[in-house]
Simulated scan of single mutants.
Amino acid sequence: MASTPLTAQTATGNEIAAACEYLNEADVRTGYCIGYIIGAWEGLKLGAFQMLLASGADGTAQELDNAINNLLGICVPATVERGQIIDIAMKYFDENPEERHLPARGLIRDALRISFPAVELGTVSPI
Rank of each mutant, 00 (worst) to 15 (best):
Q62G: 08
A104F: 04
L53H: 06
N69F: 05
V76T: 14
A18H: 12
A19F: 15
L112F: 10
E81P: 01
L102M: 08
S115H: 13
A89M: 01
I85C: 03
P97I: 02
N66H: 14
F49P: 00
T79L: 08
I68E: 09
T60D: 13
Y32V: 03
I16D: 05
P126N: 09
A104G: 04
I88T: 14
N24V: 05
I85F: 02
Y36P: 02
D87H: 06
E99N: 09
G31L: 07
M51K: 04
T60E: 15
G35R: 00
T10R: 12
S115V: 00
T60P: 13
A8F: 11
L64W: 06
I16R: 02
T123N: 15
A67G: 14
E95W: 08
T12L: 06
D27H: 15
R29A: 03
K45P: 01
I37Q: 01
S55K: 14
P97N: 13
L107T: 01
V80Y: 08
L107H: 03
G47Q: 09
T123D: 15
P97F: 10
Q9C: 06
L102H: 06
A67S: 14
L64P: 08
P77M: 10
D110A: 12
G73V: 03
I74Y: 06
G35W: 08
L102Q: 13
A26Q: 10
L121M: 10
T79E: 15
G122C: 13
A67H: 06
D94P: 00
I37E: 04
Q9G: 09
A54G: 10
V124W: 08
Y22T: 05
A78Q: 12
V119I: 13
A40Q: 00
I16G: 05
G43F: 00
F49H: 13
D27T: 01
C75G: 07
T79H: 15
I74W: 02
I68T: 10
L46H: 05
L102P: 01
T7Q: 07
I16H: 03
A78G: 09
N14E: 15
F49Y: 14
V124E: 09
V28G: 12
R100D: 02
A26M: 11
L71I: 01
I88W: 08
D110C: 02
Q84H: 13
G39E: 05
Y22F: 14
T60M: 15
A111N: 02
A19W: 15
V76P: 04
E81L: 14
V28L: 15
T79G: 06
E120T: 07
D65V: 02
R29V: 00
A118I: 02
L102K: 13
L6T: 00
A11S: 11
L64Y: 09
S125V: 08
N69V: 01
L71S: 14
T7C: 06
E120M: 14
N14C: 08
A104K: 04
A11D: 07
I88V: 14
T10C: 07
V80Q: 09
D110S: 11
P97A: 13
E25C: 06
W41F: 06
F49R: 13
R29M: 02
V124M: 10
A111L: 03
L112N: 09
P103N: 06
T10A: 10
N66V: 08
R109D: 01
A89C: 03
N96L: 09
A89N: 05
D58C: 12
G47P: 01
A11I: 00
F93M: 04
I108W: 04
N14P: 02
A78N: 13
A57G: 15
